[in-house]
Simulated scan of single mutants.
Amino acid sequence: PGVPRESRYLAAAVKAKRELQNDASLFFRFAQNPTIAVTGTRGKTTTTHWIAQLLSKKYGPIVPTGNNPDNPFLTELRLLERSRDTKRPVVVEVSSWQSEYMARALRAPCIAVITNLFPDHLNRYGGSMEEYARAKAEIFRLQDKDDTLVLNADSTWTQFFLKQKPKARMFFFSKKPLAKNREGVFLRGAHLVFRTNGKEQKICSVKKFTKDFGEHNLENVMAGVAALFAFDQKMKFSERSLLQLKGVHMRQEIIFKKRGLTVVNDSTATSPDGTIAAIERFKNDHPLLITGGTDKDLEMRELARVIKQHILPARLILLNGSATKLLVADLLRKKYFKKTKPQLFGTLIECVEAATFIAKGKGTIIFSPGSASFEKFKNEFDRGEQFNKLVKNSFTKI
């Protein structure tokens, strides 16, 4: 799916009247199992993993597939074919690049979830948010009345998706009470509530969950619970079961914690919104931020505003790259640095060394690039693994 849409090789294949498919379209064409598919800009990986974890309690071990380097689509397809168990649910994460070809599968997921939509990958979509949204909408285009589409009632882009006239049953999730004519999961006070067919069911308190996992993860868990109720309304949830959910690798993952110092690996934050979420979560923990990377035609102004609000200039470490230059320009316009100069480094090892010296064993070091990785790394996972190794070498003696 990472092949550019304007690739001359794809153009040659089309000219030769060859059929084009990607891993997602092949998976949905041949997989016979009931499938819950999750897409969106932020939170899709966490939501996917949490749906799988909660389903596993009732249906046995489920490993998410799709946009997952440990279990990609075609690997999962082979496992399903060998098991011959067509009743076990499958949970998949779908990127916008993968969803572009999903309609070619001629089959749709029985449950589709769109967590939210923010600017991302605009270099692939000609700078157009609408084109990016259309790619996401492919996840539900072939759904019918027996399927369910789960949308974020608090997202400004939900109206766009509704204008595409989805044929599936609609569930929504929201941090506010839903409109009376809408079904789904919402927050009332400190409790999750599920509404369907005009009846409401109090699920559990999420007060401690929100405190421990952060406000943004409340949306992720609501999306997951809505999808699970759409799949099986006999599913049971409790505050304890939600607090037992495990975080996702390299997504605000705490990889080191000792004697007043915490280190967070958020390498999969490939857009400014991801880094903003990380800052908001750890803003009261004396944060030191390592950020920067490759540009994807995304605005950095809001990230610059949040950095100015919560990160001291002396505790901002910048990994040089095309996106970093844009961020620095926005910070300069906001007079963020004042009399200091940006702490700009060419390699990740230099960033970690500087962070180690500045932190002096206290506070929270957040590695959240807020941009792509391709100028210096294979991908965001390679970037994150390199960070983990550097942290292990730097902090194990503390």
Rank of each mutant, 00 (worst) to 15 (best):
R134H: 10
R134W: 03
K136T: 05
K136C: 07
K136M: 04
K136A: 06
A137C: 04
E138M: 14
I139D: 06
I139P: 09
I139K: 10
F140Q: 05
F140M: 06
R141H: 10
L142D: 10
Q143P: 01
Q143S: 04
Q143V: 07
D146K: 14
D146C: 02
D147H: 08
D147F: 07
T148H: 11
L149Q: 04
V150T: 09
N152Y: 06
N152C: 08
N152R: 08
A153H: 12
A153R: 14
S155P: 00
S155R: 03
W157M: 13
Q159E: 15
L162F: 08
Q164A: 10
Q164F: 01
P166C: 03
K167L: 13
K167W: 00
A168Y: 01
F171V: 12
F172C: 03
F173L: 08
F173V: 06
F173H: 09
K175A: 13
K175V: 13
K176C: 01
P177R: 08
A179E: 15
N181P: 00
N181S: 13
R182Y: 09
R182A: 06
R182C: 12
G184M: 10
F186Q: 04
F186W: 13
R188K: 14
G189K: 12
G189F: 05
H191Y: 11
T196R: 15
N197T: 06
G198N: 10
G198K: 08
K202V: 15
C204I: 05
K208E: 15
K208G: 00
F209C: 12
T210L: 11
T210W: 05
K211F: 11
D212Q: 14
D212S: 10
F213V: 01
F213G: 00
E215Q: 13
H216P: 00
H216T: 05
N217R: 13
N217F: 04
L218W: 03
E219F: 15
V221D: 10
M222N: 11
A223H: 12
A223Q: 11
A223D: 11
A223F: 07
A226F: 09
A226P: 08
A226L: 11
A226T: 10
A226S: 15
L228Q: 11
F229H: 09
A230C: 05
A230H: 08
A230K: 06
M235A: 07
F237R: 09
S238L: 09
E239M: 03
R240Q: 14
R240S: 13
L242A: 11
L242S: 05
L245D: 02
K246P: 00
G247I: 06
H249V: 08
R251A: 02
R251N: 03
R251C: 03
E253T: 12
F256E: 11
F256M: 07
K258F: 02
K258N: 14
R259A: 14
R259F: 02
G260V: 07
G260H: 06
L261Y: 07
T262M: 12
T262R: 12
V263Y: 07
V263E: 12
